[in-house]
Simulated assay, not measured.
Amino acid sequence: MALNLQEIPRVKTITKEAFMAEYFTPQKPVVIERYIEDWPAYKKWNLDYMKEVAGHKTVPLYDDRPVDYKDGFNEPHAKMKMRDYVDLLKNQPTRYRIFLWNVLKEVPELQKDFSFPDFGLRLMKGLPMLFFGGRDSYTFMHYDIDLANIFHFHFEGTKECILFDQKQNDALYKIPYSLITREDIDFHNPDFEKWPALKNAQGYITRLNHGEVLYMPEGYWHYMRYITPGFSMSLRAIARHPKNLGKAIYNIFVMRHLDNAMRRIKGQDWIDWKNEQAIVRTNKKNNITG
């Protein structure tokens, strides 16, 4: 048995008006296949080029270890020179990923390789973020703290993306006071005996290839798995729907600080309680017993 997923719609290219009417307004995802072929990045950006222009930079690395109460918010698990990291990606599978790397701040010359597209939303121009991963590395299922509209541009190789909207929260084993689901769920090959509520979740799936753009609407959960080594860049626009904007403000100014305070006070007991509550609450909402 597999997750209940439908393929994300695909278009070759799209006008601003069509994007707003067909995808932004109804808050549906879409893959745009040939939107950035006029960007210099389309031809230039690959792992070797990143090694050339940013090889001297020290980059933060993350893996798939479970959250520990000692970990700060988005605190890296290791650091490495970009040149060494690219060599690692190309030579062997690795769980290490680069997560939320601000390309403008770190390597300003890369800004010349792309432009901010006009999809009808005001993109945050100070926050183009890069994400790198090795073969079979993956992100936990999560959604972004600001519930932004995200445009995810993929470069080199292939990446699998699984998405759920916020209406699926009750079936995803969401961790309270967090932005993630249970970390021991394998969304690529889920165990429905262990996680029966997942049968009730309805989501989307696609595989992104070089130069393709994935639009993820506000607050969409996303799980990303690198089929081959590669990297992506995300551009984002602030949430426009009042409910999502309210959630974003709560997450940033209340939930994050509350969670950090409870980690300091209760330590690992807080993490363990949240993980247990994810099961208790999900089972209750889905009338699952035993």
Rank of each mutant, 00 (worst) to 15 (best):
E7T: 08
P190F: 09
K247R: 08
R10N: 14
L104F: 02
P66L: 13
P242H: 09
S178Y: 13
V53K: 12
G203A: 01
D63L: 01
I252V: 14
M233R: 09
E218A: 03
F140R: 15
P242S: 11
W45Y: 06
L127C: 11
R95K: 13
F131M: 08
Y220R: 05
E276P: 00
A21H: 08
K159H: 02
N74P: 10
F24S: 02
V213D: 00
W221M: 13
N209R: 05
M233I: 10
L89Q: 04
L235N: 04
N283R: 13
D146T: 00
V67C: 02
L104H: 00
Y49E: 05
I180F: 12
L104W: 00
R10P: 14
D118A: 03
L130K: 02
Q268I: 09
G246N: 05
S232Y: 03
A2Y: 02
L258E: 02
A237H: 06
L5K: 14
F140P: 12
K285C: 04
P176A: 10
F24V: 10
V254A: 09
Q202K: 15
E183I: 07
V103M: 02
M224E: 05
L127R: 12
F131V: 07
L110M: 06
D146N: 05
K243S: 03
E37S: 10
V11E: 13
I205Q: 08
T25H: 04
H257K: 11
P217K: 10
W101R: 02
L88F: 11
F99Y: 14
L88D: 12
H257A: 10
